[in-house]
Design a protein around this nucleic acid. Sequence first.
RNA 1: CGGGGAGUAGCGCAGUUUGGUAGCGCAUCUGGUUUGGGACCAGAGGGUCGCAGGUUCAAAUCCUGUCUCCCCGACCA
Length: 426
Amino acid sequence: MVRVAYMSKMYAPTLKELPAEAEIASHKLSLRAGLIRKSASGIYSFLPLGYRVIKKIEDIVRDEMDAIGCQEVLLPIVQPAELWRESGRWDDYGPELARFNDRHEREFCLGPTHEEIITDMVKGEIRSYRNLPFTLYQINMKFRDEVRPRFGLLRGREFNMKDAYSFHTTQESLQEHYDQQAAAYGRICERLGLDYRPVDADSGQIGGDVSREFMALADAGEAELVYCDCGYGATTESLGEDFDPSIEHSCPKCGAPLKLVRGIEVSQVFQLGTKYSKVMGLTYQDENGVDQFPFMGCYGVGVSRSMAAVIEQSHDDDGIIWPVSIAPYQVMIIALSSDDEAFNYADSLAQQLVEKGVEIVVDDRDERAGVKFADADLLGFPLQVIVGKRGFEAGEIEVKIRKTGEKHVVALDDATTEIKQLLDRL
RNA sequence: CGGGGAGUAGCGCAGUUUGGUAGCGCAUCUGGUUUGGGACCAGAGGGUCGCAGGUUCAAAUCCUGUCUCCCCGACCA
């Protein structure tokens, strides 16, 4: 059951002053709005409002994964060294792989990605070509002991990620699913309200031959990319050392001048081929009873990083501007008057809206108007409904659209429907 | 790992040069006045100055070591 939330009860410690540790907008605002708190370098706790956003992003990702036939699982974070020795990555991965021994001196690592675990798991179950293709995914914390964590959630060491792994009998089947994943990733970016570009990329540590990344455009992004309005895009890294960013380049597809920008890598799709199935001995029997190695793909979405990317792209001097799709609450009702009648009206309006499926938080705190307005802007709810004594006595309330700042005066009796309509238009 | 910066009250900072026993703003608590854009007045609480050694009559301040955090670079599914 969905309930009205109240600011007076909410654990949402906002900061008036800029945190000294943060440099970029998304990091500053995540801290100021009380979405996250740091435990150690690159390691964060998610507070109620931040975790609501994370869960909403996860639900969008789940919806898109389920829509293309993927099935959700949950894989272990703690993984035995032997699997990583099998794949060769125990030695190859380097110090980014966090390792430790258990009480019996057996070696383990914290999963930075889950190819080994899933390949091993599937190995016990796959017998026949009839079992293929299929795709499993999970949404889980990853740990990578990054050389230099920075920018809050943009490059953390522990982070929330969706990772999917697909298994196929043919390259064509892999290609087909890879395309479906890429299309789903485009839809995910759109539903998150991101300004993004898909680009050709390196496959790096994960390995494999073909890879695309989805870049949220942002000056604070760590990646550099080129793109063209015709649809072409590539990371400058993938273009190799001979790419000179100081001179203008033309699009290899249409010849138009390429744009050079910075971006945040929010997701990536890979074709792994038979790299992991071969090295870890994952086989199935084909129609002729002959053992074959499945083709594999893997597909990742940085969930916590996506949250930071959205803030990076959608904020102003006053705070965050959430898209309706992932706002922690869609509407904040600011109860300005302590007058019983006006407050009771605000509360009943909240109840009515909740019953219509709108997520509502009421600022019922005993604070001055300025404090409430400032927090509402900082927290970035798409709509602010202002219920004050003066307006209430005149039979009206005010609805402010966070993004544009425009205000609508609404009659008390029409409030529920008007708010619903304004929300639907955002 | 190389280069740079920083650890002093919950947060943001001053004090370190020139050692003398810790301060400001915000926040918190109490009382009062306020109440549509981060109020005002009066009072109060809160810090082994990151940690460990050392020098000294005396260390936030000087010396040595160490830990942590941030930025640039290297690195990065």
